[in-house]
Every structure is written in C-alpha cells, then in structure tokens.
Amino acid sequence: MALLGFKKFAVGILLLSVSVHVGAAAPDTIRLKELGKFEGWRENHLVGFGIVTGLAGTGDSPRSRATRQSLANFMSNFDVMLTSDQINSRNVAIVSLMAQLPPITHQGDKVDVIVTSLGDARSLVGGTLLLAPLKGPDGKVYALAQGAISVGGYRYDQNGNIAQKNHATGGVIPGGAQAEQDIFSSPLRDDGTMDFVLESPDYTTIERVAKAINLTFKQTLASVRDSSAVRVAIPPGQLANPSAFMSALETIEVRPDQRARVVINERTGTIIAGGDVKISKVTVAHGDLKVSVLTNYFVSQPQIIGRAGPNIRTQVVPNTQINVNEEQGGMVELPDASSVGDLVVALNKIKVSTRDIIAILQGIKTAGALHADLILQ
C-alpha cells in the first residue's frame, strides 16, 4: 500500500509514500489469522443500568423521575423506605453500562466498562458506580460492574459561564466488570467441520485459501462455501485436540487478491491509494479563475450645517469593486497504465492544490480512466 498524505504549504503539496514489509514471509503473502477469523469466534456484548453517586452537584436534576425512582428502589434494599418524591439530590445520576467479554472468559476475569449518562447530569467527574448487573441478549447476568469512573474531561459552569474539556457525561471503569460465569465459544460443529470467514469477501482470495489449506495438509479438507467462507473438515485423528490443527491452520500464508480502491477524506485532504491502482491514458487541463467582490461604505455628509430640513440628511453610500484574476492554467498528460502516485507527482509540479486534486480524481473516475473504486469519507 502507498500512503499519499497531502498538506498545503507555501511550496505546494507534500507527497509521502510508505512501503512496509512485516516478518519473513514472501512478498504479498499474509497469514490466515490476519485475513479473517473462525465463524462463531466473537466477543459477547453486555449491557446494564446503574446509579452513579458522589457527584459534586452535577448529577441529574429533580426533574428526572427515573433517577429518583431508581434511588428509592436501591435504598429500599437496605430497609430505608422513602418515596421518590422525598428524594432531592444532584449528587446522583442514572447511567447505561456497556462491556464486551472475550470469546473465552473464565469466572473472575475482568473487563472494562463504558459508562454514559442517561439523564440530564452535567458531569460524571468524581462519580462512583454502585454494584450493577450486566446482561447479555438472552437476559442472563454474565458480569457485575462497580467502581470509580475515569472521565478524562471536565465541565464546570457558574453564572452562565461554562468551561468544558471533552465529554464529561461519559467515562470508563478500567477492569470494572467481573465475569460471574464461564463463556466458551467453539467454532467446531458436531460433524467435525468449521468455517473460516474472510473480513473482505472475495472469490479469488477464498479459492486461494482453500487450495493453500489442501496443499499444506496434503489432503482435501477445505471447500469453498461462498465468497467469504471456506469450510474445513478436521482430520479424524485430530478431533481429540482441535486446537493444534487450528493453530497450524492460522499460520498458513496466502496471497490475497485486493480490489483497487482510492479513499479520499475531503475534511483532512488525505488520499490513500493502493500501489496497483492504474489510470488509463488521460489529459488533465487545470485553470483557476478567481472573482472577488469588495464593497466599501462611506458616509455622505451634507455641507449645509444648522439648516436641517425634510430633504437634508446623512446618507451611507456603497462603493463596490469587482476584481477578476484568471491565473494561467497547466496541462498534464499521462501515458497508459500510470498510477495514482504518478498523477499526484505530475499535478504537484504545476502546483495544484489538494482540493483540486480530489476534484480531478473524481473527474477522471467519471471519465472512466480511473480503474478503482472511489470512496469518499
């Protein structure tokens, strides 16, 4: 991959090209574990509801009925019987909780918890989450969360003046959730098969994956299921220890086939293109016409002083000037099978701005000369 990063300076555009080779593998070959994953091997999402206390007057307002009701329910567990109308505190807030458990989790393992405000609290700085259950999509409790919240920002307001850094209504509790039961996600089916799924579906790549697996184990174990998955049968002799087979499977190297793409970020003026992105023979003519309209106002003061009448008064008169400046344009002609990098270097020589380069790439794509998907961000 070639990274083309552009920043506008007085001298023009900076072109940066980076090429990285990792490991001792053959050029352009990648291990299967970097191309995808085994089907069923995924993280488990948890969600919960909790109460944050210890806020310095920045919690939910008394208008938040859900906060007052939640606090009354919590206090009733400790034989403190109060109605929601009897609770009036800005030191508490109701929050939503989110966490992710790894595919294999043992009882007692700890994970981070994301905390976000549900009410109208102004800040969660200094707050502590009370013990709260985290549930999965099946409604079962898989972890318990509790601890001090790290916000990484602040928000203070006084007499209409506000000082804020980052978002103070969200934070994280590092290691704040503890798993209450074991979780095991097995990609192996009852018939001794499993599916390997690519992150980017592609028929050419998945065919190469199947051939590499069969060639490595010297038997027909893999068959293509679709453009994103290959079904692999574990040899009968390794069913008792499938982890060893899966470990060997992950280290198989394959040369993936990539679809040509050019990614453009118009906000930052960044263009990222693969090294194999080609451009057909094309001619680009670039010119710049600048029109500026400047209006100045001056006051017309009557010369007769002290003789004011119905038709004598001060008048504001506009003075408008229109300036047209047409700069000399440049022309770039590229031979067949040129790359995006060649185009950028040529445009840089005639001092074309980053925004104009983006517009030119869009025009070349429309003309059918850019043989890649153009992705705008």
Rank of each mutant, 00 (worst) to 15 (best):
V22I: 14
D28K: 13
D28N: 13
T53P: 00
F74C: 02
N44M: 12
V52E: 06
L55N: 03
I51K: 02
G23I: 11
A25N: 12
E39M: 13
F49L: 12
A25G: 13
G54L: 04
A56W: 10
L46A: 08
H45T: 07
P27S: 13
S19N: 14
G48F: 02
G23S: 09
A72H: 01
R65K: 12
S64Q: 07
E34T: 08
K33V: 13
I30E: 14
D28Q: 14
S61I: 03
A72P: 02
F49S: 11
P27Y: 09
N73D: 00
I30R: 10
G57R: 12
N73V: 02
S61K: 08
Q69M: 06
V22S: 12
W41F: 09
P62T: 09
A26P: 04
E34Y: 15
I51D: 11
G57N: 07
R31Y: 12
P27I: 13
T67M: 11
G36M: 10
L32D: 09
G36Q: 09
G59M: 01
V20A: 13
G50I: 08
G36L: 09
A66F: 02
A72Q: 00
T67Q: 05
E43I: 12
S64Y: 00
S61C: 06
E43W: 10
R63G: 09
H21F: 10
S61M: 04
G48Q: 07
G57D: 03
H45I: 03
R65F: 07
V20M: 11
A24I: 10
T53Q: 07
D28E: 14
R42G: 10
S61A: 05
R68P: 00
P62V: 09
F74S: 03
L71A: 01
L55R: 03
P27Q: 14
R63M: 03
T67W: 01
R31S: 15
L32E: 11
P27F: 08
A56I: 05
R31G: 15
F38M: 13
T53A: 04
S19W: 02
H21E: 14
N44Q: 14
